[in-house]
């Protein structure tokens, strides 16, 4: 699982544009709950990665978590289209 911390200047609209450009398929929108912040979940067209866009008002920036067999490639494609402040490999 890869976590991308986006630059504070990156907006939700910017991320929508990136998702559209990459052909990501929206799968669900989860409102904030006790266990998780609000997030929009996409999958890659080949179903090899899930992309969670996390919009937590407590955080200074948007977060993107990419998981799945092709997480590394999907994250790289994401990075190529937006400004990423930090990338971390996270143990699931």
């Amino acid at each position: 699982m890869i976590r991308l911390v986006l630059a504070p200047s990156v907006t939700v609209d910017d991320l929508d544009d990136v998702a559209f450009g990459l052909g990501l398929v929206m799968m669900n929108i989860l409102p904030a709950g006790d266990a998780h912040p609000a997030q929009t979940i996409y999958r890659t067209p080949d179903r090899q990665a899930l992309v969670h866009v996390i919009n937590d008002p407590r955080a200074a920036a948007l977060l993107v978590i990419v998981q799945g067999p092709d997480a590394a490639e999907a994250a790289a494609r994401f990075r190529a289209r937006t400004v990423v402040a930090a990338q971390e490999l996270v143990n699931a």
Partner: peptide, 18 residues
């Protein structure tokens, strides 16, 4: 709104939720 956004995405009509 979330459900609408999903439905629009499902139909292929969504570019930006905004």
């Amino acid at each position: 709104l979330a459900g609408l956004t999903l439905a629009a995405a499902k139909s292929g009509a969504l570019r930006r939720a905004s």
